[in-house]
């Protein structure tokens, strides 16, 4: 079995798939930036942002259910923001009793908590759409376009190339460990070993993964030398952005800006 199915890219021919990756990259960042700048409690703007990202999901022909399910991954972190519901001063809303404690939820606290949750939720959806409709080499191109240093882009590229190879290796290691994690029929034995031993074995697996990665990188380096590599990362120059791409970029940025101005007018 291979872990390729974890690659979030979903091939397709939708307008979002075809959109220049540089435009998508910048717009995703701009969208997340706009969500971050939207004031607490600007519900209408949140609805609009959500409508925007859902609209793009429909356009991208990704299943909206898929995006929403994936977006739930980021949900547990919301626990970190939960306390402000009860600690922010303001008009009390309801009282939560847990055993001997009574926690008073305030209105500003609730507003802030829900705002954080929605911002996080729409932002992660935008990031999912980007990753699901853009192949990694195109993302690398977008990184170059926004002036990420070439050396760093090369490291990203090489990491991507070997990511699934090494993830497979990790899974095979875990399977081999699991296969030998047996329970004896003999009575009175406690299986599993100590916690420290289990952690150390896992460390051994990680260590063997790293040693093999080092040796693999040596072989890759030699194969690169054999093809004339001299340490200079070269790549083809980026193509100019097409007229249509510029229009999409400008219009979308304008929409986001208008949304933001609207938000600031009413809720700042």
């Amino acid at each position: 079995m291979h872990v390729h199915f974890l690659d979030p890219y979903r091939p397709g021919q939708s307008p979002i798939h075809k959109l220049d990756s540089r435009v998508k990259f910048v717009l995703t960042l701009a969208f997340i930036f706009a969500a971050a700048l939207t004031p607490t409690g600007a519900w209408a703007i949140y609805i609009l942002l959500l409508a925007l990202v859902l609209g793009v999901e429909v356009l991208s022909e990704l299943r909206v259910g898929y995006v929403l399910k994936r977006a739930a991954l980021a949900l547990p972190f919301i626990l970190a923001a939960l306390p402000i519901v009860f600690t922010m001063p303001g008009e009390p809303r309801f009282i939560l009793s847990i055993g001997p404690w009574a926690l008073t939820a305030s209105l500003p606290g609730l507003e802030r908590f829900i705002s954080i949750a929605i911002k996080s939720w729409v932002s992660v959806q935008a990031a999912i759409v980007l990753a699901s409709t853009t192949e990694f080499p195109d993302l690398l191109m977008a990184m170059r376009a926004v002036r990420v240093p070439r050396l760093l882009v090369s490291i990203f590229g090489l990491m991507w190339r070997y990511l699934f190879v090494l993830a497979d290796e990790a899974i095979r290691l875990m399977r081999a460990r699991l296969s030998r994690s047996g329970v004896s029929d003999q009575a009175g034995l406690k299986p599993g070993g100590s916690l420290a031993w289990r952690a150390r074995v896992t460390g051994g697996m990680a260590g063997s993964l790293f040693v093999r990665a080092f040796e693999r990188s040596d072989r890759i380096y030699m194969a690169m030398l054999a093809r004339g590599y001299d340490g200079e990362a070269r790549s083809e120059p980026l193509q100019a952005l097409s007229g249509a791409s510029w229009v999409v970029l400008a219009l979308s940025l304008f929409t986001l800006l208008a949304l933001l101005v609207f938000a600031l007018l009413f809720w700042a």
Partner: peptide, 17 residues
């Protein structure tokens, strides 16, 4: 798992100590 001994193709995956 105690009754079946599974030997994987690549011994490097099995030898991690």
């Amino acid at each position: 798992r105690a009754r079946v001994g599974l030997v994987f193709q690549n011994p490097d995956d099995q030898l991690f100590s």
